[in-house]
């Protein structure tokens, strides 16, 4: 296990693996996402209470879900940066933070557009919406802090500490709808209980979550490869690979 772990720290090894998996991630991700969205938009039945406006759920929930799980992954990478000083973990955090920012923004935006016809307001300062806004600022803070520090190693450590401090926000987002009373409803998809949705609505939702997850995998690989190239451009293996026409 430790051997695998240390191998994972090698940018060259990761570069090769990522290049091999990326086409599959892209194709499978696009297909699943497209299937989920078309199904959700055109074929899933409408909701008895909200009518067709609930169809926003097929992008609102996947983006919110991804935004949170990406932050958890970044926190795990932050621990690896601080404890093992593994470069690849820091590469991951830097490559993924802008994607997280975009997904958090998308979940807030779609939530606001959904809230207008159903709740009667674009925005309310309840615990769920506010904690999600804090997540947006955390992603922004991670990006800004990374850019503000020139030295690569100190930037990596500072960013890792910020990511770890911010991770307490994740359980707050998740349980905000249970710990406090909010305008936002509790979660539809639960880990331990049956989802409160019939199959013909649940399947497209799960498809688009899976599709977006794979697309995120593709994006993360691509952006990590770019970051690795920038950092390792003076090394032998990068030169050999690029001169051999490698991507």
């Amino acid at each position: 296990m430790w051997q695998f772990f240390h191998k994972l720290g090698s940018p060259k090894w990761f570069y090769g693996i990522a290049t091999r998996f990326m086409p599959w991630l892209l194709v499978a991700g696009l297909m699943l996402l497209l299937a989920g969205l078309v199904w959700g938009l055109a074929f899933a039945p409408k909701d008895y209470l909200q009518g067709n406006s609930y169809r926003i759920i097929f992008i609102h929930v996947p983006t919110a879900f991804l935004a949170q799980s990406m932050y958890i992954m970044m926190a795990a990478a932050g621990v690896v940066t601080l404890v093992w000083r593994m470069k690849l973990a820091d590469v991951f955090v830097k490559a993924v933070a802008p994607v997280g920012l975009v997904f958090t923004f998308l979940s807030l935006f779609t939530g606001a557009v959904w809230g207008k016809p159903t709740w009667g307001t674009w925005w309310i300062w309840d615990a769920r919406l506010t904690s999600m806004l804090i997540l947006l600022f955390l992603y922004g803070g991670v990006i800004a802090l990374d850019r503000a520090i020139n030295d690569e190693k100190s930037a990596a450590r500072a960013v890792a500490v910020l990511v770890l401090v911010g991770v307490v926000n994740i359980p707050i987002i998740k349980y905000s709808v249970e710990w406090w009373n909010t305008l936002h409803q509790p979660a539809t998809l639960k880990l331990t209980e049956e989802p409160s949705m019939p199959t013909e609505m649940l399947v497209p939702l799960l498809l688009s979550i899976a599709g977006l997850y794979l697309l995120f995998g593709w994006l993360a690989c691509l952006r990590m490869k770019t970051e690795i190239l920038v950092r390792e451009q003076r090394t032998r293996w990068v030169k050999d690979m690029i001169m051999a026409g490698g991507r």
């Binding site: 305008l183 979660a187 539809t188 409160s196 949705m197 019939p198 609505m201």
Partner: peptide, 9 residues
């Protein structure tokens, strides 16, 4: 305020 249950009409 609506709940987390969705279902066809």
């Amino acid at each position: 305020k609506h709940d987390e249950n969705y279902m066809p009409p």
